[in-house]
């Protein structure tokens, strides 16, 4: 026979545990909720471009940039597009 639970018993044995679980879940997920969507490699990128310390003049819209001549992907290539000034650049490339 199932004993009848009073309102007080329900509060103590159901309400309080639920409250504790809710608080713990909030503590666990608070940081990710505050940070918003996180970058996950392999999934689509959702955000608009960000250029930190970019040119002081009007920033170009990447969608309207002129077509570039074919360049090899290796560092040390000569960049001539945009300004028309040829300069030998260096650097590195990586993928993940």
């Amino acid at each position: 026979m199932i004993p009848q639970l009073s309102g007080h018993s329900l509060l103590v044995f159901v309400g309080i545990p639920l409250l504790v679980v809710a608080v713990l879940a909030l503590l666990v997920f608070a940081s990710s909720i505050a940070d918003g969507p996180r970058y996950r490699p392999g999934l689509s990128w959702w955000a608009p471009p960000v250029w930190i310390n970019g040119p002081t003049a009007t920033k170009p819209d990447p969608a309207n940039l002129p077509e570039l001549p074919e360049l090899t992907g290796a560092p040390g290539t000569t960049a001539t597009a945009g300004t028309g000034v040829a300069r030998t650049t260096g650097g590195a490339s990586a993928s993940w």
């Binding site: 960000v50 960049a79 945009g82």
Partner: peptide
């Protein structure tokens, strides 16, 4: 001069990065 760009490329990444690079005030 250091600059950081985060975003998608319309073409191959290296030529696109070079195009962005040439837009900087003092690329050299």
């Amino acid at each position: 001069h250091f600059s950081v760009y985060v975003g998608g490329a319309d073409s191959e990444t290296r030529p696109f990065a070079l195009e962005l690079f040439n837009e900087l005030d003092d690329p050299d």
